[in-house]
Write a protein that binds this DNA or RNA. Structure first.
Length: 262
DNA sequence: ATGCCTCAGCTCCTGAGA
């Protein structure tokens, strides 16, 4: 089973790149489920027909201008849930579904803007609610994958300049403590289960030639539950789409899990 | 200096992203 996450920063702009990328991954090891973030589309404007025409199932949950999430799958998406049950939220940030017995959660974590901002307070509340939701989901779904744009770096290896950016948004101790709380539920960061190139990032600012200079952050993650961790066979960041014309500022992260999917 | 890109929308500027 091959899963991927990609913050597309507007599906309206990036739909051709998403379809091209899925097509390029096809062959003998295609993507089974792709989680998208920042679709920035209300549900009535979601390109369902184009995605279904590519041979995929799709579930989506969006809003105007900001946020918006979707799951694109080669297999049926069962028991779709929007956002975090019981957590009042007017932003479309989470979409979950069961695919071939695996609970797949795609999430767009709040950015937080700055550690002293109201948006950071919301980010902390949201992270607490997510933790409780993942904890209860694991009771029913021991095979679970949580992936998306976390807007948190795990440690200094995920930061192009950890000295200059120490304590700034995405790099604060309190954000990383929330990340650790998720791992303490028995999840593992699939990317760090393997040796990886130094300075591996998933996001680069559009400005100042950040991608060309590899000044980035690793903020897009795939967490895999204990019951599946021994079956993870690979986890990679695919930098190719960041080189496209009009790229998203994020690039896909991909995990392979050795599961018979029929 | 709070910008440098990019995107959406109450579109010729602003807010937000990270």
């Amino acid at each position: 089973m091959k899963l991927a996450t990609w913050n597309v920063n507007s599906l309206n702009v990036r739909l051709p790149q998403v379809l091209d990328w899925l097509q390029a991954q096809a062959g003998d090891d295609p993507i089974d489920v792709l989680a998208l973030q920042e679709t920035k589309l209300t549900d009535d404007k979601f390109p369902r027909a184009e995605i279904e025409a590519s041979g995929h199932h799709v579930a989506f949950f969006g809003q105007k201008t900001y946020n918006g999430v979707a799951l694109i799958s080669r297999h049926p998406l069962q028991d779709v849930v929007h956002n975090i049950p019981g957590f009042e939220d007017d932003m479309a940030r989470v979409i979950s579904a069961t695919v071939r017995g695996v609970r797949v959660m795609g999430a767009y974590f709040p950015n937080g803007q700055a550690p002293d901002s109201d948006k950071f307070v919301y980010k902390m509340r949201w992270l607490e609610a997510l933790h409780a939701h993942v904890q209860s989901s694991l009771l029913h779904h021991p095979r679970l994958v949580l992936m998306g744009d976390f807007n948190i770096t795990w440690d200094d290896r995920d930061v192009w300049d950890p000295v200059a950016l120490a304590g700034t948004i995405h790099c604060t101790d309190v954000e990383r403590a929330h990340f650790k709380n998720l791992l303490d539920l028995g999840l593992v960061d699939a990317f760090r289960q393997f040796d990886q190139p130094e300075k591996s990032y998933s996001w680069w600012d559009y400005r100042e030639f950040a991608f060309r200079r590899n000044r980035g952050l690793r903020i897009d993650h795939i967490l895999v539950s204990h019951d599946l961790r021994d079956q993870i066979t690979a986890c990679t960041i695919d930098k190719a789409p960041r080189k496209n014309e009009r790229p998203s500022d994020h690039t896909p992260v991909v995990v392979n899990i050795a599961l018979p999917i029929g």
